[in-house]
């Protein structure tokens, strides 16, 4: 085991596994290995699985004793981490994003606040490979790590009432995509034509551990993609 792990119970039905409080890829991969191991071995004990950056949480089923879960995990986890079969299979994705000011007039405000030229901004935002750590805030909202420091910006003090679905935004040291309309305090900097929800079903192929790049597309191509009835994410997987 690489990192010190703490296993705790909270109340009568929650067990958590804590890694050191830092955002790091090695910790993420260790956490995902444990998550896969739990899915294989503890499916009948776990009611609902939760995942943060460095905390794995599980609500256990009625009748499952959390204290014995804690002691069993303390015994078994070190060995579980050695299971090759549980290592996460990570995939790489491109996400088409249009940065055209006609489509995203709000981007002007961000560029002014940051004193950045549009081309400069697009260059930095799209050259980074982002790591998907976990989902949260909204259904399908990805917590991505890796935003270049020169693009960081404090969140708006007064959140906007509505940030539209598909908006690519920056807030603090994070960048992400709004999967559905929502109030939010982030700066909108782009728009993706790909939809996250189809008839109330979340349809995203991205799993924690995967890497994402933003692929700049023209307004014309954005329109073309948006008109497609069902745009498949599979076309945007990067191989090799």
């Amino acid at each position: 085991m690489n990192h010190p792990i703490q296993i705790v119970s909270i109340g009568p039905d929650i067990v958590e596994i804590h890694w050191p409080e830092t955002i790091s890829e090695p910790i993420l991969f260790e956490l995902l290995t444990v998550k896969n191991w739990l899915a294989r071995h503890w499916a009948e004990k776990i009611h609902r699985m939760y995942q943060g950056y460095q905390v794995l949480g599980m609500q256990v089923n009625a009748g499952v004793d959390t204290e014995s879960c804690v002691s069993e995990l303390r015994d078994r986890l070190p060995r579980s981490l050695e299971q090759e079969v549980d290592r996460p299979q990570v995939r790489s994705w491109k996400v088409p994003v249009c940065y055209d000011l006609q489509l995203v007039p709000e981007l002007t405000r961000y560029l002014e606040e940051k004193s950045l030229a549009l081309s400069q901004f697009i260059d930095v935002h799209t050259r980074t490979t982002y790591r998907l750590y976990c989902y949260g805030f909204l259904p399908g909202f990805m917590y991505l790590g890796g935003l270049d420091e020169c693009l960081h910006i404090p969140r708006k003090t007064n959140p906007d009432r509505k940030i539209g679905a598909g908006s690519v935004a920056i807030g603090g040291s994070q960048t992400g995509i709004y999967p559905m309309d929502s109030p939010g305090g982030w700066y909108v900097v782009g728009k993706t034509p790909v939809v996250f929800f189809k008839q109330g079903r979340l349809e995203v192929p991205f799993r924690p551990g995967d890497s994402l790049r933003f692929d700049p597309v023209s307004l014309a191509y954005f329109d073309e993609l948006q008109q497609k009835e069902s745009l498949s994410w599979e076309e945007w997987e990067e191989h090799g």
Binding site: R48, M49, Y50, Q51, G136, F137, P139, F141, L202
Partner: peptide, 11 residues
């Protein structure tokens, strides 16, 4: 919604 908490879906 018992499943999908790890996709950010509230219970």
């Amino acid at each position: 919604r018992i499943a999908h908490a790890d996709l950010g879906v509230p219970l």
